[in-house]
Design a protein around this nucleic acid. Sequence first.
DNA 1: TGTACATCAGTGAACGCGCGTTCACTGATGTAC
DNA 2: TGTACATCAGTGAACGCGCGTTCACTGATGTAC
Lengths: 209, 209
Amino acid sequence: MTERARNRRGEGTRLRAEILRAAAALLEQSGSEESVTLRAVARSVGIAPPSIYAHFPDRETIIDAVIDEAFGELTAELGRVIDPADDPVGQLLAGCAAYLEFAKRQPNRYRVLFQRQELSGPGAGFTPVRESSFRYLANAVQLCIDSGRSASTDAFGDACAIWVALHGYATLSSDLCSFPWPPEQAMRDRIVLGLAKISAEKVNPDKQG
Amino acid sequence: MTERARNRRGEGTRLRAEILRAAAALLEQSGSEESVTLRAVARSVGIAPPSIYAHFPDRETIIDAVIDEAFGELTAELGRVIDPADDPVGQLLAGCAAYLEFAKRQPNRYRVLFQRQELSGPGAGFTPVRESSFRYLANAVQLCIDSGRSASTDAFGDACAIWVALHGYATLSSDLCSFPWPPEQAMRDRIVLGLAKISAEKVNPDKQG
DNA sequence: TGTACATCAGTGAACGCGCGTTCACTGATGTAC
DNA sequence: TGTACATCAGTGAACGCGCGTTCACTGATGTAC
């Protein structure tokens, strides 16, 4: 660990970003929330533990912030990869592939996204930023229906099914890496096309004329 | 906490069962593995912490034993509910419903089943007792194919898809209980019938014949 | 039936550790005059 | 240009806590004779 240069006046908030980055890295490397301790984060950043209190009121808030940040990244990633000019089935597949890719790249950070206990009260745990990735999905399914490529009659319900399946696949395949999983693309197509009720010959009409 | 009566001579192993029961209860109630501490278990059983060492070499082994036990219960539950005299689609649906029921009844204990890091080495984490519930599933899908009720051409692959979807549904619906989930049976049918490629009119031929 | 003794189930005190958090502080940086 | 001072970023020592684990032990229970 190299000597850390103190931030200049007015740039104290930079430390906040450093703390978040270190916490996210710790979470991903250790694989468990419990090893993201104040002291471990401080050690990793190269500061004294009390220095964290200038930016976060307690340990819990750090982890919450890491999760919010990860949700933001996931949503941004989906926005980047979904091309509204693409055909609906292509959008749906691309979005789902990116979702799995995100989970695969940082499985532990992904896992924690939906695993935190919800606060009490209706809707407390599913805030706007947290559900926007689901909106992409439900919207893509609806587009497939509208364009006649999907036989689904319930975009929301089928989007739920696709989501839980992708989530289950992402978490199980990272946890049980010695299980003889089928190839990833096969799993993805099975889940997405099967649950969105899109028959094989409708996947890419351009190429199949 | 009532006064605990010391076990009689030769019945020392009873304490082992009490420890396991307490650990399982702690895991389920607290929702996280980290709060299953030696001392918490001892407190809950009503013994001194060192008494545990007569039965388990360390904390880790207790949790492993709790998980093995849960796997055994899950497998037993599936065996109980699947009636080989039933029609294949009925068997498949009954097994999947029981799987979800198990997860719903004790969500935290369920979650931990597949979440432990795997040991290194091929197949280390997926021991016979742990994969037997998957075998039930793959077998049920194969029976549906054999009887002409499923259009699947790959029982193993489709069983994988059903499993990940059920797992994702079980974990997400318990973690995000404020999400506006569709009714459970609708989700189950969507997942199981959709991914096993069983068309609606083939679900219950006896009643529709 | 009585008694010495081995065994077994479980205890109490202690250890060193890392944790979250508090407190009073330090010393470099910028600013007002 | 020089200097006193307020501010800001960050520190060091300390707290009380619960943890896993160790050690030498106790006292009831059963058994051999």
